[in-house]
Nucleic acid binder design. Sequence first.
DNA 1: CTTATAAATGTATTTTTATTACATACTGTG
DNA 2: CACAGTATGTAATAAAAATACATTTATAAG
Lengths: 289, 289
Amino acid sequence: MTTPQNLLSNLAKPAQAFSKAEQKVADAILANPELTTRSSIARLAQAAAVSEPTVNRFCKRLGATGFPDFKLKLALSLASGARFINSAVAEDDTAPTFTPKIFNASIHALEKTRDSIDPKLIHHVIDEVVASKRIYFFGQGNSGPVAQDAEFKFFRFNTPVSAHQDPLMQRMLAAASKPGDLFIIISYTGRTIGLVETARLARDSLGTVISITAPASPLARASDLAITLDVGEDTDEYLPMTSRLAQLTLLDVIATGVTLRQGQAHRPHLARIKASLASTRFNSAEQDT
Amino acid sequence: MTTPQNLLSNLAKPAQAFSKAEQKVADAILANPELTTRSSIARLAQAAAVSEPTVNRFCKRLGATGFPDFKLKLALSLASGARFINSAVAEDDTAPTFTPKIFNASIHALEKTRDSIDPKLIHHVIDEVVASKRIYFFGQGNSGPVAQDAEFKFFRFNTPVSAHQDPLMQRMLAAASKPGDLFIIISYTGRTIGLVETARLARDSLGTVISITAPASPLARASDLAITLDVGEDTDEYLPMTSRLAQLTLLDVIATGVTLRQGQAHRPHLARIKASLASTRFNSAEQDT
DNA sequence: CTTATAAATGTATTTTTATTACATACTGTG
DNA sequence: CACAGTATGTAATAAAAATACATTTATAAG
C-alpha cells in the first residue's frame, strides 16, 4: 500500500508556520477537501483569493512536486480515513463523532498488520498446523475469547482442536504434550507469566509452540514460531481491542491457508457440520450464528 | 467516505468488451497502476503504444469525465486495497497473495459497517446500558466468543455483567429477568431459534433486549432495539468472520460511549482492575493479555 | 469478392491547466 | 527610513488534456 501521507492532518495542524496567503490556501482546502481533489489550480486560487503561483508554492512546501501531485496525495489521505485517525476519542465526543473514530482506528490497525505480516512466516505456521495431530489454543483474559473463536474456526478441519482459558488446564495439557501436539498461544503483551511457563513446559515435552504476541516478548522467545503484532495500542483509558481484531484476522488467514492446502479433502466434513446446524434455525439457514 | 469506485477490478475483468487499442491501454495500466496515477496522458499513451485520444476515450468509457478524473479514481481504488477486495481467495492462492486479501476483506467490512451505522441508534443503546442494573451478553456458536469478549469489555463499568453461551442458562436467566436487566444478544443470522425464544422470554419478564444481528431477522423483530449489520458475507467455503469483527468493533463503540457518558466516575474502579493484574506479568505491565 | 457502412483509431489543433521567470509589495531590523 | 529578505502577484511559457476531424480497419450485404 502507498505510504499514508496524511496531508490533511498536516494542513489542520496549528503548529504549521504558514504565511498569510498560504494560510488562506490551507483554509480553502480544508473547507472542502473533496472538491479540491477535483479542482484546477485556478479554481482553488480563486477560492482562496490568492494567485496561482501561491497555491503552487504551497503544494511544494508540503512535499508535493506540484499541484497535481498534491491533489493526488490529498485524495489518498482522504481515502484512508485520515480525517479521524490521528484524533483519539475525546471527552466531548458524541455518538456521531466517536463511532467513525473507533471504526477507523480498527481499520488502521488492520492495515498496519496487513503491511507488516511476513508471508513466509505464515507459510511456516500453516506447515505446522497441517503437520500437527492435535491443536490447542490458549489465551487468558481478553485473549481467551480469541482462542475460543479460533477453536470454532479450526473445527472444520479433521485435526482435533480445543481452546482453553483456564491456566491450570493449560499447564496440565502442556506438561502432557507429545510430538504432533501444536499449541497456539495468544497473548497481546507476551508477558503473562502463566502463558510463558506453559509455552516452556510444552516445548520441554516435545510439543510445538506457536505464539501470536508482541515482538521481542518473553512469550515470543519461548516459542518455536512467533507471529508478532505491533499494533500501536489505544490509550490507557480505552482498553485494547484493535489488537484482538488483528489476532482474529490473522487466525482467519491461517485457517484459510490450511483450507487451501488441504484442497478438496475436507469438504465432506464441512458439509456435515452445516447440516447438523440446520435444525437450530428459522429457515434460510446461514453458516454463522 | 468516498464511494469506492473499484476501477481496478473492472479493468482486469475479462468480461469487459474492450477494443484492441483499449485493451492495450488496460494492460499498460495494469502493468503498473501506481505509476499510471502519476503519469501524463502522453506517457501512458506511449506505454500502451496508442494515441492520446484513445486513452482519453478509454477513460470516459470507464465512467470518468476525463484522464485526470480517471487517475484520481484509480488512485482511490488503489488506496482502498481494491486490488484484492473483489477477488475472493482462490484455490491457487499462496500466503503472500491470500493474506492481504483476507485483511482487505476485513477492512472493507469495517468500512461498510462504519458507513451504515446510525449514531442515533447507538445513542439509544448507550442510554439503555447506562440505565441498566445488570447486563447479560448472549451468543451461541461463533458469536459465543463475541459475547465473552463483551463481558471483558464491560467489566470495567460498575454494572454487574456476565456472558453466557449455554442455551439453557440463557433461557433460565431470561425467564427470571426483571426491569433493569439488559440482555444484549449477538447473532449473525438472527435466526437461531433458541436465541429468538430467549429474547421473547426476557421481554415477557420485563427485561430489555438489544440485539446485534441481521436486518429484518426474527431476532431483530423480537428485540427492543436492534443494531443490524449487513456485512456482505464471504462465500460458502470460508466461514464468516468479517461479521464478528464488525460486532466486536460495534461493542467497542458502545463501551466507549458508556465510558464517555460516565465521565470521571468509573476511573478508580479501572485503576483497581489494572492493579489486580500486575502480579501476573513479567514487568512492564500492559493492560491486555 | 466487392462495396457500403459503421466502428475504431490516429493526426492536428485548440483549449485548459500548471509552471516558471520576473517584478512588485510587504516586513522587520539596523 | 533605508535596506535586506521574504512574500506575493503578474505575465509569459510550457505542459497536458480535450476536441474536431481525417483516416484506417472491420463488418455485413449484395
